[in-house]
Simulated assay, not measured.
Amino acid sequence: MNKSDIATLLPEHVKLLRFDTPEQLTQTLAEHISQSLTQAVEERGEAAIALSGGRTPLPLFQRLSETPLPWSSVSITLADDRWLPTDQADSNAGLIERHLLQHEAQQARFISLWQPGKTALEAESDCAERLAALPALLDMVVLGMGNDGHTASLFPCASELQHALETEMPCAAVTPTSAPHARMTLSARRLLASRERILHLKGADKLETLHNALLDDDIRIMPIRLFLRQPLTIYWSP
């Protein structure tokens, strides 16, 4: 992937930050998140952030967990989660509990999407009620991206994609055909109701996917394109 190719394709409102190592990225992004949340608490008395799961952000979670912040005034939720109990390895809520809500960060309020005893579809309304406790504008959303161009659980293969893109509800149940497990995702509207959006990427393959996403604008094929139309900062490392 020619680095200059992506640079020429990026719209002015999208900023790409490249780091030589994942450790450098983690340090810089953790510092930025810390400053943003602290400033939000100082200015508005509270802060709210939506995070993504998976392996890539685990070092970030661990770094943040050890960072002194006004955590008792911070609300954390997920951009999406697999519909699994938190003791399952693929549960994003479980990752948050084990890697972020520790040490300094254990005082934060965590609003989980997962609810036992219901399918994701059955839990949509209850999940929306939980999310209503968050401020109208999230201070930050940290997204990831799959090589099919999905972000959060806005999967191009899912029959519920259009609903998740258009609904006025803050969340939507989604069942992808290209990945395991039913999901609950924040809706496009709720993800965009945020002061800042960050895309956290690792690996050359993600640069290739980003390049492909920038070549066209069909959101149904690559949902990440919706967020490339908005102000966005991309943090990338090999």
Rank of each mutant, 00 (worst) to 15 (best):
M1N: 13
N2G: 11
D5Y: 10
L9P: 06
L10F: 01
K15D: 12
Q24F: 01
L25E: 09
A30I: 01
A30V: 02
H32W: 13
Q35R: 14
V41F: 05
E42P: 00
E43L: 13
R44E: 14
G45L: 04
G45K: 02
I49A: 05
R55Y: 10
L64D: 02
S65V: 06
T67S: 09
T67P: 01
S72G: 07
S73E: 14
T86C: 13
Q88P: 01
L95C: 10
E97D: 12
Q102E: 12
E104K: 10
E104H: 12
Q107R: 15
F110C: 11
S112M: 06
L113A: 10
W114R: 05
T119I: 09
E122I: 10
A123E: 11
C127E: 09
D139A: 06
M140Y: 01
G144F: 02
N147S: 14
P156Y: 02
C157S: 15
A164Q: 05
L165G: 08
T167F: 03
T185K: 03
A188G: 10
R190Q: 10
I198L: 13
K202V: 12
G203I: 03
L207C: 01
T209M: 14
A213C: 06
L214A: 01
D216S: 14
D217K: 13
D218V: 13
D218W: 06
I219Y: 00
R220Y: 13
R229L: 07
Q230S: 08
T233F: 03
I234P: 02
